[in-house]
Design a binder for these strands. Structure first.
Lengths: 162, 162
DNA sequence: GACCAATGTTGGTTGCGCCAACTATAAGCA
DNA sequence: TGCTTATAGTTGGCGCAACCAACATTGGTC
């Protein structure tokens, strides 16, 4: 975006979906800029955070936990391991799997990212009071949960025909 | 996304920026699916809405009002005019400009999109009461305005050296 | 007339979210 | 035991939104 300045149509301003998208884009810009100062991206943070919280895991498990596609996990692990932040080794118990482990460098890098991101959150919600921030997060969570609950409204699936 | 199912790391769940992004992605999916049933995309709607509200305008003006990059305006206008929803004609008063005008078909298409989008808004906020929706939109607006007000925090610009 | 600003246009790039296809291994079941 | 199905990693690709740089044309200004 970075354009505008010349008030947008009412119709657009009024749409909650657009409002949300607008705020999300600003948030992402802030996040990306902050992470970029350390040469990292959002996927990197997600994987490191998942590894630190749940310990070593297979790439598939990482993907499931972070919502990142398997193929993108591959690329991200490649990059992280090239930087020495994680290690990839074959799982002796299941030869299909790789076990991904955070290194000490990975942990301390994660700590750095955490600091940066928490500053970003503050900047993001700067115009709200503490109480309002809680309200805001609460509402967002309810909306998110509500959407997760209602399936994508696919056309009803009949019994698959043989 | 469409993955997960296996609870995400707390650190991620806790980040407002991520929450917002998550909701925005869901919203965008809903919007895109709805618009796609008519062969349109978000940029199409934005331009049509701007045209209907402000009347005929140059492509640059459209870009400024909708926050869409000039180059993307070109592509979108190409598509809309190919579908007969807008018309592009050179501005006699300023030969650099094109004047973009909505056609009758464009207006009625916009009406259709409006209907679809208002349904989407309902689906999006389904888990909130009416009062909460207002609160939510209010908070979102404050956050958006706050971000717009605080300049991107660029490193202070000294007087440019000659 | 020389300069700078704005306009339309072309042709990129990036990140993110996806999907399909393939190989290898593992697990379930007849 | 074999056959089948499921899972894991990997490659290569797609589409979209959001950008950016460069260029030619035209307008305004000094």
């Amino acid at each position: 975006m970075e354009n505008a300045e010349e008030t947008a149509p009412r119709r657009l301003r009024a749409l909650p979906s657009r409002l949300i998208n607008h705020v999300a884009m600003s948030a992402n810009r802030l996040v990306d800029r902050a992470l970029a100062t350390t040469g990292s991206r959002r996927y990197d943070y997600a994987l490191l955070a998942a590894l630190e919280e749940f310990g070593p895991a297979s790439q598939a498990a990482l993907g499931r936990r972070t919502g990142i596609d398997r193929s993108d996990v591959v690329a991200t692990v490649n990059e992280l391991s090239a930087r020495g932040l994680v290690e990839r080794s074959p799982d002796p118990a299941d030869r299909r799997r790789n076990v991904i482990t955070v290194t000490a460098a990975g942990i301390s890098h994660l700590a750095l990212l955490d600091r940066l991101l928490s500053e970003v959150q503050d900047a993001l919600l700067a115009s709200l009071t503490t109480a309002e921030r809680e309200q805001f997060v609460g509402l967002l969570t309810r909306v998110a949960d509500g959407l997760a609950a209602s399936p994508p409204a696919r056309p009803p699936v009949h019994t698959p025909r043989p």
